[in-house]
Nucleic acid binder design. Structure first.
Lengths: 200, 200
DNA sequence: ATAAAATGCGAGCGATCGCTCGTGTTGCAA
DNA sequence: TTGCAACACGAGCGATCGCTCGCATTTTAT
């Protein structure tokens, strides 16, 4: 129907970034459902109408945040390619857990948005995208280290590993800053204890 | 002010149980926020007015479910007292994980309600009650096995253990029934790998 | 300079939802 | 049987929220 191409001006790009920042903050504070679009607009210092100038609906804002999240994950992980997969387990865990924790600490709103299992149907798509990306990375590393492992077992291990991150990272993010290093250590203990017998 | 004592009839008690069942089902399907009180009443086959005859507001229904959950946890764990704490680790894990999984599989709505970290303020109280109860059990077992462990370390270990359950149980609950035993095995691997070096 | 497009505003519409209230029905006690 | 309390109904109130729309202002293109 309508490609609806809009030639953005520099001001528009800035506004969109401001709106994303505001949305991330409000989502982090009250969660997706309780966050009102008017509150997001107010936090960004604009009117509701301006928000809808750039984002067609509330879900589109979440989608934009999901994209930003994926981008940060990618750049944080850098080149997490098969060559890294053959490092000693301890170091591999450091390389995976470190960036994962850093990205989540820097974006306290994301887990509140995408870490839940009972989310509204409208958010399922961006959520699946984030999960699929992380799952793919873990699965690839497992495949490189244990090519003999049946795909079903590997998938199950990757799924469990994701859930371990999903369970422990919110705890780390919400902890006092001073307590965080100890909790990150616990996360690594968990990963080492679980993955050691499998890919150690 | 008003003690507001109401002499319940047998029919009323039955209605309250039906409403709790209906609420558990609706909460499990769409989550707490998206669950409407009218939908809960309809699911129970009664009018909205009847629901509010027994529960003052939406939160009171969640509170009743939290109470029921605690009750089931207590009876499922049976006598999980310090004497059990000195069993071999594998068996101890079986005794803790088994009932925990069973209760959650039998009540698929509870984790959807009380397992989230970003819940509305009104639900914080019942959530804390459930968490405190589980935390207390785990902490007591750890204290019995490792009396020398500093309280801070013990608390951190108990907290992490809770998060491991919190991360893996939703996966187990939502899995196909045939896949569940394998996932429960993974849960036990995780617990063994993490707790082994600490209280093995 | 002028038109067109992009940006910005904010009152308020339409829909939803938690909850109420007036009224009618059923159960129990005396 | 009679009277009161518990139970039940369901239309709809009041508040909230996502989103719209008419209009004003700023930027860009010509």
């Amino acid at each position: 129907m309508e490609p609806k191409v809009v030639r953005r001006q520099a001001r528009g790009e800035r506004r969109m970034a401001e709106l994303q920042d505001a949305a991330a903050a409000v989502f982090a504070e009250v969660g997706y459902e309780a966050a009102t679009t008017n509150a997001i607009a107010a936090r960004a210092g604009v009117s509701p109408g301006t928000l809808y100038q750039f984002y067609g609906n509330k879900e589109a804002i979440a989608q934009a945040l999901a994209d930003r999240y994926l981008e940060q994950l990618r750049s944080a992980h850098g080149a997490l390619t098969p060559e890294l997969a053959h490092l000693p387990l301890d170091e591999l865990i450091d390389r995976m857990a470190g960036p994962m924790v850093a990205v989540n600490v820097a974006n306290p709103g994301f887990k509140a948005l995408f870490g839940r299992s009972d989310m509204p149907e409208q958010l399922a798509a961006p959520t699946r995208a984030v999960h699929a990306a992380v799952f793919g990375r873990i699965d690839a590393v497992l495949a490189a280290r244990r090519p003999d492992l049946p795909a079903a077992d590997r998938a199950r291990t990757a799924q469990v590993t994701m859930r371990l991150f999903g369970g422990l990272i919110p705890m780390i993010v919400s902890a006092e800053e001073g307590e965080r290093p100890a909790l990150v250590q616990e996360l690594k203990k968990v990963l080492r204890g679980y993955l050691g017998p499998i890919v150690g």
